[in-house]
């Protein structure tokens, strides 16, 4: 788990399996290297203090150990060595067991647990395998996730050696012995177990962001919503609008009864932008999802302002309403009203 926090090389070993992964959390023990443990804890606190004023974090919980083991197996299932006859089934088995393991890990019980898990898994989507292609005057070879031998790079001018290294994220790896969609689903499932990470990476390309139960549970609380807003503030506003708009529209279309926390999140985010506390996207919306998020945010923010009379002076309220009015009158806002059941 150290590289997840401190960075560096991630070297998956032999597959762990579901039973061992679930038993990892029950083992009592401590870090072998106290200094390394101190560095990891300091890095986790630094990560947490970006959004919350806390000074200490506990050691890894059993659920975090299990999630880390599952993540390990996900990476091992993507090992290109499995892409051979009689071995692909082994990779599928490892992937399936990892998925079952993640399913058995409970979602965070409170915001502090969500924050703790985020400090471990905040960068899991940053993990990338570097594939290096070495070409020389009579041939070339690609080395997947390993350093090319130095002998192939000798006499670069004489042999006209060219080395091209390209990083590939987990879901972009090739060749892959398992079904890519299943791997993506497993990763999405893992993200649902760390909802703050799920929200903080909502602009990712894959797996696409959707409001999971855990994420909705997190933003349904005042503290969780604050953390989520702070997490979203560090991302490009337009991309966040697009991701939240798409996820909220799907949520309202399929699980409308559960969509209130997401709408409130959008409303408070829009209010923060209008009040000048958060960055606003520049220019007009570049897609329907982004426009929907803006319209829904404006409608919900107006509703929020009208519903809560306290906390705002009349002038501030009026100023905010004036600023929200263009967004609240857009076509996308009308669609949002229809979805929310709010009269025009």
């Amino acid at each position: 788990m150290t590289p997840l926090v401190l960075g560096g090389a991630v070297r998956p070993g032999h597959a762990i399996g579901a039973r061992v992964a679930l038993d990892l959390g029950r083992l009592e023990g401590s870090w072998l290297d106290p200094e390394l443990e101190a560095r990891v804890q300091a890095a986790r606190v630094r990560r947490a203090r970006r959004w919350a004023p806390i000074d200490a974090l506990g050691a890894a919980t059993p659920a975090e150990w299990t999630l880390a083991a599952s993540l390990h197996d996900l990476f091992q299932a993507a090992n290109p060595a499995f892409d051979a006859g009689l071995r692909r089934s082994a990779a599928a088995r490892i992937l399936e067991l990892a998925r079952e393991t993640i399913e058995r890990v409970p979602t965070p019980a409170d915001v502090s647990q969500a924050l703790s898990r985020h400090t471990w898994f905040a960068r899991i989507l940053d993990i990338a395998r570097t594939d290096t292609t070495v070409s020389w005057w009579i041939g070339s070879h690609t080395y997947l996730g390993v350093d090319p031998p130095r002998r192939l790079q000798a006499w670069p001018e004489l042999r006209r050696v060219s080395v091209a290294a390209a990083p590939h994220a987990l879901l972009e790896l090739a060749p892959l012995a398992v079904d890519r969609s299943r791997l993506s689903d497993a990763m999405a499932l893992l993200l649902t177990r760390t909802p703050l990470t799920e929200l903080a990476t909502c602009t990712r390309e894959a797996p696409a962001f959707t409001f999971s139960q855990a994420a909705l549970a997190l933003v349904s609380t005042r503290t969780g919503r604050t953390l989520a807003l702070r997490a979203l503030a560090g991302l490009p506003p337009a991309e966040v609008d697009a991701a939240l708009g798409r996820a909220t529209r799907d949520l309202l279309a399929t699980r409308r009864a559960e969509g209130a926390p997401a709408v409130t999140l959008l409303a408070e985010r829009t209010l923060a932008q209008v009040a000048g506390h958060a960055a606003r996207p520049q220019g007009s919306a570049r897609g329907p999802a982004e426009a929907f998020a803006r319209g829904l945010g404006a409608v919900a923010a107006v509703s929020l302002l009208e519903a809560s009379r306290e906390g705002w002076t009349p002038d501030e309220r009026q100023r905010l309403l004036v600023a929200l009015e263009p967004g609240a009158r857009s076509d996308d806002a009308r669609e949002a009203r229809a979805l929310l059941g709010v009269p025009a």
Binding site: R11, R19, A81, A91, R123, D126, A128, R129, L144
Partner: peptide, 30 residues
């Protein structure tokens, strides 16, 4: 940077890779 390295999978990559037991191991439940 987080650099994923590829390691050998060994002759028996599924050795010791078992399915979970029936009971839920963790007490953390939302």
């Amino acid at each position: 940077t987080l650099d994923l390295k590829v390691t050998p999978i060994g002759m028996l990559p599924l050795r010791g890779v078992d399915a979970p037991a029936e009971e839920a191991p963790s007490k953390e439940r939302a």
